[in-house]
Design a protein around this nucleic acid. Structure first.
Length: 731
DNA sequence: TGGGAGTGCTTTTTT
DNA sequence: AGCACTCCCA
């Protein structure tokens, strides 16, 4: 017991050993949040206050859930496997599987991921003959999800205008279609679970009695429905320990309600609020910058990070001429750091939007620096994997139209759009699934589709007595997928991924074999399918060993690095103009994002911006981010003293045309007029031009490849010239 | 059926 | 600029 609590600081200790009360832990970045959470559970169990059975611990990501489970296992000698530690979706899925009948779901209901949901909505619009320009499928998905996350069914949805009325009708159609197919989207897992507990008194009482302690990670990210779900489960006297950081709430755009923290405090906590403010990650200057930024936000519960690690290095600031110049600066610094012995994996480049990675990647590639970009396509989202999974889904549930349509003609077997239209029409008429309706097709279409149905039936029979990895292997081979990718020129990697899928299934069976056996071997497939939907897998196969880490600020949340570069600190980009347009709330969220970005750094932090940036195929002139002004100057070390990285007139590809005078939005070179332009040109400088003769520079604008000067050539008049093209000789 | 041309969009993202 | 998506033709 004593070692469990050893080395906790005073507020941490206080949090871990709280009596059974509702409490809110305001855990700053790097303050040992996960440690507190896991130690709290370990302490509750090892002091005999509750059995592992009575704990419910909720996270947002599988990664967090896994980490919590692993750390708990290392703290107390208990079997953590059967414990209810998981994501909101994972736990709801578990509950719905256990009570599928009461929840009105088929035993092996499938889970639609976002892509599946989108394709279902598109299909629905098509079947109902609705113009998808007027009702964009993506927007409709959002409409549906937003309602579900508010706990609102189509039947209760309010329609204040005709347009919304129509969308509500479509929402209802979508619900009906999901029910026909026996599938549930992500939001449905939560809502269905919530409704089940609300409606079914004995079931609710059972779980309310069972869970004595509910612990919630990243509480600031909960949405309305998740909060309601927690309240419902806690209704029988369970105590809720909510851990979160309002300053790190960066998911408002997907429904997170920071307000839940304040509500929870007001309605449940009383005085039980503990602040974890000692930071064990970053040096003082970095924290000072973070604190200086975040204190400009009005809506805060209040918290101030501190460290006893000392000030550390100053924060390095660099203003580049262009995005390319910025990338060069960053990569040069990184190469130097690596030479000095900093592991590449400890260098992270963060950006506000993913599109910014391109220039950086190009430069890294050119210089031969290994790097890894986070945020791409993930394993279970790859087309070959989704195809294989679709076959598997059809084995478990033939009514799954999404799966049916995905593979009915893949690999191609002569089933064209016309046949499918007929099929969909008759399915609609019969109010049945496509699979079911296939039997009614006649003629040539009947034959081809019939062959597909027979294929699926054959697969089902052939795999009936196989183990999960063998089932998958068999399906990949006999469906024709393997053959298809063998003949495709780019198919090699896809084949490898399919092999990897078989491996994943083998590992899955080994890892979860105990749980699986409860449901029988027949349930293994269903469990694996759910697993695949709920856990889309690591971002990319093959973890980069010694590679610089590139990711969006959002993706960096929860991570830490010795050296962090925050790039693209420009007004309009970071803070993003779309957010700024949303008013104070939007700007405050951007500021929290900046706060998250800064607090990722342990030892060294670089902030950089560019004066011009290629955006949507156009060069944009940018002012430095207002966030830079919010950091006290004494914390900053400005690195702009260095010489121009390239001779002004050697030029680079991709500049804009000479003298086209693209309106530079706002700021030309304000604040830099006194500094020399590249090549030593400055205001007042006399120059000679081959055609216009001798002149004097009266103004300058931009830097690098886009630098322009205004020259008074006397009789030849006043001219704006792009240094990249115009040959000017200083006199 | 599949590929090539044309069109439009473009913040952040987990489950 | 780059990418995803659609449409149309061979």
């Amino acid at each position: 017991m004593s070692d469990l609590l050893a080395n906790l600081n005073s507020p941490q200790l206080q949090a871990v050993t709280l009596p059974p009360v509702h409490a809110l832990i305001l855990a700053g970045a790097g303050s040992g949040k996960t440690r507190v959470l896991t130690t709290r559970i370990a302490w509750l169990i090892s002091t005999g206050q509750v059995g592992p059975h009575g704990i419910l611990a909720v996270t947002f990501t599988n990664k967090a859930a896994k980490e919590m489970t692993a750390r708990l296992a290392s703290l107390v000698p208990i079997n953590v496997r059967g414990m209810w530690i998981g994501t909101f979706h994972g736990l709801c899925n578990r509950l719905l599987r256990a009570h599928y009948r009461e929840a009105g779901l088929p035993q092996s209901f499938q889970i639609l991921d976002s892509a599946d949901q989108l394709s279902m909505v598109k299909r629905l619009l098509k079947n109902l003959n609705i113009d998808d320009e007027k009702y964009p499928p993506r927007e409709l998905c959002h409409f549906i999800n937003a309602h579900k996350e508010q706990g609102v069914r189509a039947a209760q949805a309010e329609a204040y205008d005709n347009y919304t009325q129509k969308r509500v009708e479509l929402y209802a159609e979508y619900e009906a279609q999901c029910n026909r197919e026996g599938v549930a989207d992500f939001a449905e897992l939560l809502l269905r679970c919530y409704e089940l507990l609300q409606r079914n008194e004995p079931l609710r009482a059972h779980y309310q009695q069972r869970f004595r302690h509910i612990l919630v990670d990243e509480f600031q990210d909960t949405n309305t429905l998740q909060y309601a779900w927690l309240q419902l489960l806690a209704g029988g006297g369970a105590k809720v320990l909510a851990v979160g950081d309002d300053d790190q709430s960066i998911y408002r755009f997907r429904g997170a309600e920071v307000g839940n923290m304040r509500d929870f405090e007001r309605d449940y906590c009383g005085n039980n609020i503990i602040r974890l403010e000692q930071n064990y990650r970053s040096h003082g200057n970095i924290l000072a910058a973070a604190n200086a930024i975040i204190k400009n936000n009005r809506e805060r519960l209040g918290k101030n990070l501190w460290t006893d690690a000392g000030e550390g290095e100053p924060i390095r600031a660099f203003e580049a001429y262009s995005d390319l110049d910025e990338a060069r600066f960053i990569i040069d610094e990184i190469r130097e750091l690596i030479r000095d012995g900093v592991p590449a994996t400890q260098c992270a480049i963060l950006y506000r939007s993913n599109a910014q990675s391109r220039v950086l990647e190009h430069e890294l590639f050119t210089k031969g620096v290994p790097y890894k970009v986070y945020g791409g396509l993930r394993f279970f989202e790859r087309q070959e994997i989704k195809h294989a999974m679709a076959y598997l889904r059809l084995l478990g549930n033939p009514d799954d139209d999404t799966a049916f349509l995905r593979v009915v003609n893949f690999p191609t077997r002569g089933i064209g759009a016309r046949s499918l239209e007929n099929l969909q029409a008759s399915a609609h008429q019969m109010n049945s699934s496509l699979y079911n309706a296939a039997a009614s097709l006649t003629g040539k279409a009947g034959q081809t589709v019939g062959a597909f149905i027979r294929l699926i039936e054959a697969l089902r029979q052939e795999t009936a007595n196989l183990r999960l990895p063998e089932i998958i292997e068999h399906v990949i081979e006999k469906s024709g997928l393997a053959q298809h990718y063998r003949t495709e020129k780019e198919g090699q990697e896809r084949l490898e991924n399919l092999d990897e899928l078989i491996n994943a299934a083998a590992t899955f069976v080994d890892d979860d074999g105990v749980v699986m056996s409860v449901e029988g071997e027949g349930g293994a497939l269903a469990s694996f399918l759910a697993h695949a939907s709920l856990e889309s897998g690591e971002h990319q196969a093959g973890e980069g060993q010694e590679a610089v880490q590139l990711m969006s600020v959002h993706a960096a949340k929860g991570l830490e690095f010795d050296v962090v570069f925050i790039s693209g600190l420009e007004q309009g980009l970071f803070p993003h103009e779309n957010s700024v347009n949303e008013g104070r709330e939007g700007l405050e969220e951007e500021r929290r994002l900046m706060y998250v970005a800064i607090t990722r750094a342990r030892q060294r932090l670089y902030l950089s911006c560019a004066q011009t940036r290629m955006l949507h195929g156009q060069t944009r002139y940018c002012a430095p981010s207002s966030f830079l002004d919010e950091i006290p100057a004494e914390l900053l070390l400005k690195l702009n003293k260095r010489a121009a990285p390239e001779p002004a007139w050697s030029g680079r590809a991709g500049g804009r045309g000479a003298g086209t005078g693209t309106a530079s939005s706002g700021r030309a070179s304000a604040g830099y007029a006194a500094e020399p332009m590249p090549g030593g040109l400055r205001i007042g400088q006399n120059v000679e031009h081959a055609k216009f003769g001798i002149g004097v520079i009266v103004a300058t604008e931009g830097r690098g490849g886009d630098a322009r000067v205004q020259v008074n050539f006397g009789g030849c008049g006043m001219k704006w010239l792009a240094l990249e093209y115009a040959k000017l000789t200083p006199l």
